[in-house]
Design a protein around this nucleic acid. Structure first.
Lengths: 204, 204
DNA sequence: TTAGTTAGTGATAGAGTGCTAACTAAAGGA
DNA sequence: TCCTTTAGTTAGCACTCTATCACTAACTAA
């Protein structure tokens, strides 16, 4: 009854299970036993592949990071306008969160940050990269006249990043009761409309 | 050496301690022992005042709720313009979060929500009331011409609430490395500038 | 075959953690 | 002054969870 797999495969399975379960139980209630059950191992078997639980969390964080980077780069298509690419990147991020609800749960977990400083810094950098990406598109949109001249790209990017995070918070507290990507796209348009130069003096 | 206080006073002390400690340890790592130490009781002494830990969390939630409502109503001054009052309410919220960093920690805690459905619903309602308040001010600002005619107050309010929450997330992950209220006020102005009717066709 | 490597198991240590039960002592009115 | 009420203590139960350790069995190359 002992199913044996390579360490590489098992590690991936364990990380996957951790991501799935962290969304349901909350990151702090995620036990090595629960992971082991989901993967089909005994509890100590998990420690064959990760020396401590902290290291497991770091691997999970790295997986989240690489998922994000992958989607961001796939969402960009240089032939499109800056604002279109901006939309695509934000929508990609929303879709990823909707498909992997553990992401906000882990990202917002105070416990993980106080207990694991490396993790906190990693997520801070990751958020910083998302912000930088968004700011770059806003900057280019400004150059081609898609947004107001007086708009600071960094500030605009903060508003957009906040839009995603605030929405993720509401989605999480609402027990995921609405379509994150749909609602996000809608609100993004409202946000972008405020960034544009008003035509006709602002009366519709 | 036995210091004896009325139940009312002790309950307040326990809730205060829980709020202080939840910010430092994270809500899920907050133990009854840590609370007892902070308050000057033995661990079982806490259970004299709250029958279960869940009930304690509910009391903490109620305290957060009443703190918010108090600040919101104090921030309103009917003689001011709608947009000024909007600013005041948002700044009051930011100040409260900065003074009580446990609020985002508790609000964003996946564990508390999965384990205590009543708590999740309470926070959902609380957020809903904040959204409603903001939406009302946007609506009035619209009536007096302080914001664009084509702006949906509900949507604008979602953007503003997200601004606060997204900022709280960043503040928390950054280890509270910046001035929440200052940064929030600055970004709120950027947001509001996008809600206004542009003068002179949008060129500064 | 055989020997070495490595994934996985059973048993269990050891440190918490919520909560209960029985007892104690301070407060305050009759 | 006694007596009731009630805040607080000591001792400990039941359970959870990470991590260790000795051992086993599957793969792999000589």
């Amino acid at each position: 009854m002992r199913i044996r797999k390579t360490a590489e495969v098992r590690q991936a399975e364990i990380i996957d299970a951790a991501l799935r379960l962290a969304a349901r139980l909350g990151p702090e209630r995620l036990t090595t036993e629960a992971i082991a059950d989901a993967v089909g191992l005994t509890q100590p078997g998990v420690f064959r592949h990760f020396p401590t639980k902290q290291k497991l969390w770091e691997a999970v964080a790295a997986r989240i990071g690489s998922m994000m980077e992958t989607r961001w780069s796939k969402a960009q298509s240089p032939e499109d306008s800056p604002s279109s690419q901006l939309r695509a990147v934000v929508v990609a991020q929303l879709r990823l969160i909707q498909a992997t609800p553990a992401i906000p749960a882990i990202l917002f977990s105070r416990e993980l940050h106080t207990q694991n400083e490396a993790l906190r810094k990693y997520f801070l950098q990751l958020l910083g990269r998302f912000h930088g990406l968004v700011a770059e598109f806003v900057g280019r949109a400004k150059e081609v006249g898609e947004v107001r001249r007086d708009l600071e790209p960094d500030d605009a990017a903060y508003l957009i990043v906040s839009l995603v995070q605030g929405l993720a918070v509401r989605w999480s507290i609402s027990a995921r009761a609405f379509d994150l990507t749909g609602e996000g796209s809608r609100l993004l348009e409202v946000q972008l409309s405020g960034f544009r130069r008003a035509r006709r003096g602002g009366r519709r």
